[in-house]
Simulated scan of single mutants.
Amino acid sequence: MSASLPELRGEKVVLRPFTPEDITADYIGWLNDRHVTRFSNQRFREHTFDTCRAYLASFEGTPNLFVSVRLASNGQAIGTMSAYRNPHHNTCDVGIMIGAREYWSGGYGQESWNLLLDWLLAREPDGGGVRKVTAGTLACNGGMVKLMERSGMTCEGVRVAQEIVEGEPQDIVLYGRFA
């Protein structure tokens, strides 16, 4: 996968590369919103314009992608996705955050997820495609588990009691899908 992503358009969302102009107060607010990041280790960090610029810069010169999720209707940013590729194995680990809570449970995350996975898996490996996509989440993150399963991913493993959420040990569930 080259580090470039064409615009991917669905009925509800458009995916495009995340740019420095996408680092806005709203975006930083999502990252600092403990409800949005409840199941993410992002909840342990304080995010600023500088930390966000550094994170975006970490993608430069790599085969990895940082993606802006936007409404198809008006271009409003509602979330982000990441895709970390291991070119030695032609695998890619994907993550998603729909930060604008008013778009939760409306199919926006699912469409975004499906668009990116289908694009990654449909391309030839020598053209930047991958043979397998992986993802993981806490088992208590039911929305993410459903999203992965609805996209055709299957559970490949469990890291038992791996992380603590609200004082309780939680499993991490690991999913995968082949091309």
Score class of each variant (00 low, 15 high):
residue 78 I to W: 02
residue 78 I to K: 07
residue 70 R to E: 14
residue 89 H to A: 12
residue 98 I to C: 02
residue 83 A to W: 06
residue 116 L to N: 00
residue 133 V to P: 05
residue 79 G to C: 05
residue 102 E to R: 12
residue 83 A to H: 01
residue 127 G to L: 13
residue 100 A to S: 09
residue 129 G to K: 07
residue 84 Y to K: 13
residue 70 R to A: 14
residue 104 W to L: 08
residue 134 T to L: 11
residue 64 N to P: 07
residue 125 P to M: 06
residue 67 V to I: 12
residue 66 F to L: 15
residue 67 V to Y: 05
residue 67 V to R: 09
residue 94 V to D: 03
residue 81 M to Q: 10
residue 86 N to A: 09
residue 100 A to I: 03
residue 111 E to W: 02
residue 65 L to M: 08
residue 114 N to M: 13
residue 131 R to K: 14
residue 135 A to K: 08
residue 99 G to P: 00
residue 107 G to H: 06
residue 114 N to K: 12
residue 102 E to T: 11
residue 87 P to M: 06
residue 103 Y to H: 14
residue 140 C to R: 14
residue 69 V to E: 10
residue 110 Q to L: 11
residue 140 C to D: 13
residue 105 S to I: 06
residue 89 H to C: 05
residue 123 R to P: 02
residue 85 R to T: 11
residue 133 V to A: 15
residue 103 Y to K: 07
residue 116 L to Y: 02
residue 125 P to W: 03
residue 94 V to W: 04
residue 96 I to F: 07
residue 126 D to W: 11
residue 115 L to D: 04
residue 75 G to E: 12
residue 102 E to L: 01
residue 105 S to L: 12
residue 107 G to K: 05
residue 103 Y to L: 02
residue 123 R to E: 14
residue 93 D to Q: 04
residue 114 N to C: 11
residue 109 G to D: 06
residue 138 L to N: 10
residue 125 P to V: 11
residue 113 W to P: 00
residue 92 C to A: 10
residue 122 A to K: 10
residue 130 V to Y: 03
residue 127 G to S: 15
residue 106 G to W: 01
residue 114 N to H: 09
residue 136 G to S: 15
residue 84 Y to R: 12
residue 100 A to L: 07
residue 78 I to V: 09
residue 86 N to P: 00
residue 113 W to F: 15
residue 136 G to A: 15
residue 107 G to D: 07
residue 95 G to P: 03
residue 79 G to S: 10
residue 96 I to A: 05
residue 128 G to F: 03
residue 120 L to T: 00
residue 123 R to N: 04
residue 95 G to N: 01
residue 115 L to T: 01
residue 86 N to I: 00
residue 88 H to E: 13
residue 117 L to I: 07
residue 78 I to R: 06
residue 107 G to P: 06
residue 129 G to N: 08
residue 101 R to T: 13
residue 130 V to F: 05
residue 116 L to P: 00
residue 105 S to A: 15
residue 98 I to G: 07
residue 130 V to A: 12
residue 136 G to M: 15
residue 120 L to E: 02
residue 102 E to F: 04
residue 106 G to I: 03
residue 66 F to K: 15
residue 118 D to N: 15
residue 119 W to A: 00
residue 129 G to D: 09
residue 117 L to T: 06
residue 84 Y to T: 13
residue 83 A to E: 04
residue 70 R to C: 15
residue 128 G to I: 02
residue 67 V to P: 08
residue 140 C to W: 10
residue 74 N to L: 05
residue 126 D to Q: 13
residue 130 V to D: 03
residue 139 A to Q: 07
residue 80 T to F: 06
residue 92 C to P: 00
residue 122 A to S: 13
residue 87 P to C: 08
residue 108 Y to H: 13
residue 116 L to E: 06
residue 126 D to P: 07
residue 120 L to I: 04
residue 112 S to P: 03
residue 87 P to H: 01
residue 73 S to F: 04
residue 64 N to E: 11
residue 63 P to D: 13
residue 87 P to S: 10
residue 107 G to E: 11
residue 131 R to S: 15
residue 133 V to Y: 08
residue 80 T to M: 15
residue 71 L to A: 11
